[in-house]
Amino acid sequence: MHPVLKLVVQRLALGLILLLACSAVIFLGVEALPGDTAQAIMGQSATPQALANMREKMGLDQPPLTRYFQWLGGVLTGDLGLALTNDADIAQSIGQRLGNTLFLAGCAAAISVPLAIILGLIAARHAGKWQDKLISGVTLTTISLPEFVAAYFVIFLLTQDNVLTQAIGWVTGGSGRLLPVAMVFPGMGFWERLNAVILPVIVLVLVVLAHMMRMTRAAILNVMQSAYIETAELKGLSPMTVIWRHAFPNAIAPVVSVVMLNMAYLVVGVVVVEVVFGYNALGQYLVDHVTKRDLPVVQAVGLIFAAVYIVLNMLADIIGILANPRLRHPK
């Protein structure tokens, strides 16, 4: 077997084992929460008999190990169970919201990843000069703003009638002002959706840009110490060619791992932005059901978030392996 294929298969197997371990931890964690679900649903005045009936109905009287395997078996067949609070099918409720989450994360990533890498390359090219300081200064400022502050700031700038929106309106031929909410409905077309998420996407890009930019810059500067960079300079190549053609291919692995971490954040960590813009996605759904003590929902969403982290990091690992010519082309 080709060594790369072997490594990739190894990573995939490890990812699956890790996911299984995560499911156990999530189940145990929820299990260890104080309080009693039946009591929470039926209230303080419920009789012991009614509580026992409720537990039996929900399967809570079974030993934890049995319940874990029942749950796991359900997850594997796509059955995430029913929500305690409204008896809705969890898989169905999640499906649509997951789509919204991935759409928002995908839009933010499609802009922020190339932008961060290009800014990182420019900063590395002019390391220590004003361009570098400007890029670092601006991106570090935006990452330092709490998300809701950044969000209100963006709303303030782009939804009011001011010079900026007038200029945008003059260019696009509309009012130039955006709605301060990002409502999406089933059946909306792609462009409509895109238009709806502009504001949250801008906020998310501002939040994740700095981390990836700094990592690109650091990884490039690290590679720039190598002897083969001197070789490239002595070939008379322009500084940007040296960075793009000779330094960047050797800096991919560290950059990719940070990119993936940020993409994972875009999927699982954006509940504040969802709330500010009223965007109906997984984060809000999870927070709603945590407050209602709806444990099956919390478990299901937790598992999905864990899977996102594991898959993205695995992807980073695999890209790192593929980017290494020693592994791709063994002796």
Binding site: A227, Y228, E230, T231, A232, K235, P249, N250
Partner: peptide
């Protein structure tokens, strides 16, 4: 930049380090 590579070229002591491993 025109001079380097066109008129004068360089052979380094450690070719192993002077070649880009990714190309």
């Amino acid at each position: 930049r025109t001079l380097r590579g066109k008129e004068v070229t360089y052979v380094a002591q450690s070719a192993a380090a002077a070649f880009n491993p990714a190309k």
